[in-house]
Design a protein around this nucleic acid. Structure first.
Lengths: 206, 206, 206, 206
DNA sequence: TATGAATGAGCATTCATTCAT
DNA sequence: CATGAATGAATGCTCATTCAT
């Protein structure tokens, strides 16, 4: 039987992760010492190591948490293509939310770690694979329904959308001059030009 | 008057930068010690510091070099919109070149550094600003010529292209499953649907 | 609440300071590496830095400790001029004590540091200012009492005594041939010639 | 036959020593790198090492030069006690000269080095021994002449004068509040009280 | 003779991690 | 369970000194 309740453990764990996320987003992964996290979280060094084997484990936990939250959102949505698009646009819009900034900064750190750590690389990939293949399936449906031109490779199309998301996240973090609303609006116009005509009449290739 | 020729100095400098780039791409910026660069370059620690004040200066030098090379390419191209697009597609294709892999990995490291270092952030931005505003100008021309729909915000459109580039680079680094050729081909098809109709005849929606 | 007692902390701190003082006195401030202090004290490098931010802080701590000890002595003495003189002579005699040798050697190092470090210069001055102005007050009293000729500038007179102290300390450290007892005895005779006549009868020049 | 004239060699040598003295006085002996001296002197590192084996040799050369200059002064003076005193007072006064400041600062550095370097210690002592024993001889003469009380130990008396000189030098360097003129005037008054009565009439002890 | 490029040992300092309390 | 004192290897960097030119 555990000495402290599972709830207490979970709260402690979250307390550490929140502090770590704050530090990583603020100072970067490698410029955050474990001591910084100790200070930020108010939890002693020894205890931190009873929850996590080291800094990398914290990154892994944070990213895993993201994936779980995202998976819940993805699974709750319908298979409808219009829903996919509106969900995607909602995602893009959420990038502009100032509250999301820390998460974006942290995300860039995760990318950098994924480049050199197979473990984080694998984790990152595994979190994207499921929603991406789910989206690809819906793209195929949309092509069958004539909502989308059928000459487009579904997997690549989804990857392009993912790329736009990633690039927007990056530019948001690195460039204060970015006009986020205009970016999303312009992307919406582009989507209309590609998807709408096919949905309301004969395919463009006809 | 220097004791060694300017060429020798430049070669030494490049020798250090190449070794540093290799190390940074392989192990990440922060997991590369100066000693690693010393070993990789075959140049003594003391001498390394006669060329660079520290590791950050090496990153700065590498990125600056990228910018200079890119600027040369950009300035040599015409103002034609079709050229812009084909140049862009060429850039995307170059991402698939195995020789470019190290550069991409390094690029992700630079993004992560830019998040927390104003100096690198500024450097990164300044290298992108010029080609981006140049591209925006050509987009405006294309809109005047009817090659592109005029309801699209030029700056945002360019940012979207940049985002796709950045996202493709990231996915190339993080995901071996990526079908690079299909990605570019699909993007090309998308561009055709947006740009060609306006250039060669009445808009599809007309 | 600290994990170790305040006493333990103080003892550790003193352990480091004693080792540092030994090293500084033996090898000089700049020829003592932190590693030397680590070896001499038996305390790990990391822990040393939990007590002191660097070598300079150790010098500062050592000198501060001196000042505190001296201040305690000064404050406990009476305002009597004879006491001042006998206290001064006691100080001079203590210079001859072999146990004081390390402190003298260290003191010369401190002078050298004070020349180029405003922080140590300020510290050194602040430790001397109080006893010196205290002594000057007593000199003025002695002049009012006729114990000392009134044409002597009190502040300068005190500075001369301080200078003799400093010079004796220096010669003790640098010159083994010094006959310390003779030095103090001779100084005492000189003091008699200046001070006693005024105290016990009409001035010699009268 | 030498490749460059002896004069040229001597000038080079002096150029290095002057630069070194400036650096040592400004930054302290140990915070001056050989490269600093190279920069300050305008002479290349390699050449510096053809004139001096290292920094310590420069200190030795500078101090030796001082001693030679002082010896010339001492040897040119008469054996008269009044001359000795006035020469001594002149020396004290020269301490107040702003142009002498660098020399004083350097002198303190030399003391600190002498503490830990037998070579510099020996050098320092040897430079003082001769003038000190010369002065002691003249003190003995003065005692025979009745100019000075005969109960004073000549060697100690000279050492006291040296101590005052050293202490004044130190205080001049470390304490801007020092009133140099008052110091010397007060010392002069003290000397009068000790020496004059004996010179113009019967000894005080009579 | 004169240069300054080049070396590499040595420095102060930090940090992830452990463990006695 | 919880603490934070303690460790010591590793880091970025400097510097006296050498030597090819």
């Amino acid at each position: 039987m555990p000495k402290v309740s599972a709830g207490h453990r979970a709260a402690r764990r979250q307390q550490i992760l929140d502090a770590a996320a704050r530090c990583f987003a603020r100072d970067g992964f490698h410029n955050t010492s474990v001591h910084d996290i100790v200070r930020e979280s108010g939890i002693s060094a020894g205890l931190v190591y009873r929850y996590f084997a080291g800094k990398e484990d914290m990154i892994v936990a944070i990213v895993t948490e993201w994936h779980e939250r995202r998976r819940a959102v993805v699974e709750s949505s319908t298979a409808d293509f219009a829903d996919l698009v509106s969900g995607y646009l909602g995602l893009l819009r959420s990038i502009g939310d100032p509250d999301a900034r820390d998460g974006l900064r942290l995300g860039v750190q995760v990318w950098a770690e994924a480049v050199r750590s197979p473990r984080i690389s694998e984790l990152t990939r595994s979190g994207i694979d499921v929603p991406r293949s789910g989206a690809a399936k819906r793209v195929k449906n949309a092509q069958r329904n004539g909502e989308l031109p059928s000459d487009l490779d579904p997997d690549s199309l989804v990857r392009i959308f993912v790329a736009v998301y990633q690039g927007l996240a990056l530019q948001t973090v690195l460039d204060d001059d970015l006009d986020h609303a205009a970016f999303v609006r312009t992307l919406e116009l582009l989507l209309d030009k590609v998807a709408r005509p096919a949905a309301s009449g004969p395919p463009a290739a006809g």
